[in-house]
Amino acid sequence: MAEIGKINTLNLVRETENGVYLDGENYGEILMPRKFVTDEVKEEGRATVFVYTDSEDRLVATTEEPLAKVGEFAFLNVAETNRFGAFLDWGLPKDLLVPLSEQKAKMVEGKQYLVHVFLDVLSNRVAASAKIDKYLDNIPPEYEIGEEVDLLVAEETEIGYKAIVNNQHWGILYKNQVFRPVVVGERISGYISKVREDDKIDLLMEKPGYGKIDAISQKLLETLRENHGFLALSDKSSPEVIQGLLGISKKNFKKAVGNLYKRRLIDFKSDGIKLK
């Protein structure tokens, strides 16, 4: 059964001048325009495509993949606004509509917003919503400690970074456990640290218990972050300079640097060390 707003593998039914028609089962035949039809599609008799409605509300199939599919979240730019809502650039010829009713505040052309992509089942149109919270934490989180998850960094707060976990839940990455620069909008892999009694999720960027960073290495990382990711220190620096800046011995400094370098968190430069 074909799914609108998602990737489908559909069988070829017939070929015309305009392209090929694919078997959309419950939706009937779906046109795949000729520019997307390859010899491989004809030979195999099937195609892996993204299905959505075109500007005339007809179902079409394309080999182009959008920046986000139904059920996913993404930061997208507003290409245009009008009385119906905002139209987002999501990587396809037809922009993605955020109806006025799905905006938290009126969207502005040229700005970027975090949205959830959904299917309007009444019209079969793919649309988006900026009302993120209503699409998250709707089912109990059933994760194991140490389980790897997909994260979308959504917002920076005083204590860390709010992230969307597996397109289903909110989670938090605490700043004192983030050991490299993190950017809002970035997609990263993370790990479940804890699911609390109130179903809030604590996250880590590294698997719990694996290659733990000791306190001295963590202090060095924090100092690097406070100094825009660079420190003019090396194994040639005097013990007095290291002690004055970090409050640790040169021996412990060298151990911490070695630990962070092995974990690929820092790079050596001719005049110091730098966060990756």
Rank of each mutant, 00 (worst) to 15 (best):
I145W: 00
G146Q: 07
G146A: 07
E147Y: 06
E148W: 05
E148Y: 05
V149P: 07
D150I: 05
L151M: 11
L151C: 08
V153N: 05
V153E: 02
V153A: 05
A154D: 04
A154L: 08
E155N: 06
E155S: 09
E156F: 07
T157K: 14
I159A: 12
I159W: 06
I159P: 02
Y161P: 08
A163D: 10
A163N: 08
A163P: 06
A163M: 10
A163C: 15
I164P: 11
V165K: 08
V165L: 08
V165F: 12
N166K: 02
N166T: 01
N166S: 06
N166E: 01
N167V: 04
N167G: 05
N167W: 07
H169A: 04
W170A: 01
W170G: 02
L173Q: 09
N176C: 00
Q177M: 14
V178C: 14
R180S: 10
P181K: 12
P181E: 13
V182G: 01
V183G: 03
V183D: 08
V183W: 06
G185S: 02
E186H: 00
E186L: 05
I188F: 02
I188P: 03
S189L: 05
S189D: 00
G190C: 10
G190P: 11
Y191R: 11
I192E: 10
S193Q: 14
S193D: 14
S193W: 04
S193T: 09
K194E: 15
K194H: 14
V195S: 11
V195D: 06
R196F: 11
E197I: 11
D198G: 04
D199V: 12
K200A: 14
